[in-house]
Design a protein around this nucleic acid. Sequence first.
DNA 1: TGTACATCAGTGAACGCGCGTTCACTGATGTAC
DNA 2: TGTACATCAGTGAACGCGCGTTCACTGATGTAC
Lengths: 195, 195
Amino acid sequence: MNRQEQKARTRRTLIDVTLQLSAARGFSSLSIREIAKEAKITPNAFYRHFRDLDELALVLVDEVGVGLRQLMRETRRRYEMQKEAARASVEAFMSYVTENVNLFRLLLGERQGSSTEFRRALHNEIDRFVGELTEDLERQGFGEAALAAEAMVAAVFTIGAEALDLPKHRRQELTDRLTKVLQIILRGAKKSSSH
Amino acid sequence: MNRQEQKARTRRTLIDVTLQLSAARGFSSLSIREIAKEAKITPNAFYRHFRDLDELALVLVDEVGVGLRQLMRETRRRYEMQKEAARASVEAFMSYVTENVNLFRLLLGERQGSSTEFRRALHNEIDRFVGELTEDLERQGFGEAALAAEAMVAAVFTIGAEALDLPKHRRQELTDRLTKVLQIILRGAKKSSSH
DNA sequence: TGTACATCAGTGAACGCGCGTTCACTGATGTAC
DNA sequence: TGTACATCAGTGAACGCGCGTTCACTGATGTAC
């Protein structure tokens, strides 16, 4: 393994370890020393990879964003009728949440808390998410697509946040509830377009 | 002023100072020493009022909860037709947010972050809020009241959170958007009840 | 009303700890000849 | 291929700092007689 590969490996370890730790106690309670220790390097070596914790945080936010948008693109293919659209996208979202609990804890846990730069990055990701959903809804002929998308994303993130604290077997219930909530919103938006 | 009054006064100062500080940088970044300093007592004297920061946090959560429920009761009186209901309650909510920005930053900023006990207290407040709204909606004959209430609270809190970062003059725009979002949800819920 | 004692909110010094960040360094990997 | 030098990821010791929490205390307020 050459130097470059080794460095990339350590960097990856830092990122992964940070996700694990932030899942348990929230990102903003973490320290460079703690992360370095968990990644089995000296605190000092952290600086070879990131200028500070904020820079690492931005990388993490970017990972959630990329993952989310990719998920949406895949789900989009399954969209057909209104009811199925809601169920398919909710199920995709919930499985993404389940498989990336740590990323989500980061995304949801730090919307206030931390530095301005970090918060702005989070809001950007969420806005992008709303934007893509808006386009989807417009393509399907929904009225007030932007507002409906905003309501849907609010519901998805708020109810998705609850899923993080639940044992796996109770998440199905949440998925069903979220699906119904999205159907209500879609119904409210659809009606307006048919005037 | 007797001893009891003086103690109550200091306690109140601790609470107020904590709200101010947490508005700027988030509650979970605060320390006992910092709060004590701002309240002009020694760090040590803090312990005459609260066992630790968590205990203070619970008092704050309770304050938001009481305020919110009182607000709802007042707003409820203004409810009449669907459209007016949404606008009246949104405007009441937004003015409450504007007047209690610090409490809201606390409520919204610590839904993940902090200790289990604190998080549970926050979720309880939100659940109570959803519960009261559900009853309101049922009384007005909406279908799927519980789900609609959940969607509405998600929208209100998510969009309300954005208001905190906005200058006052741009909040009207947000109020309008939130009103429209709630109308979409109400429309979606109403339709289902009229079957 | 005056005195003697009890209470207790707040003081001030001290503790050990983990923090971010610095410094000079080491030694394996990479490169030029 | 072999040697001499450069690079640089990671080391280890050290710094000053703010933290939570302890301790023995002070002195104004409150109470009993």
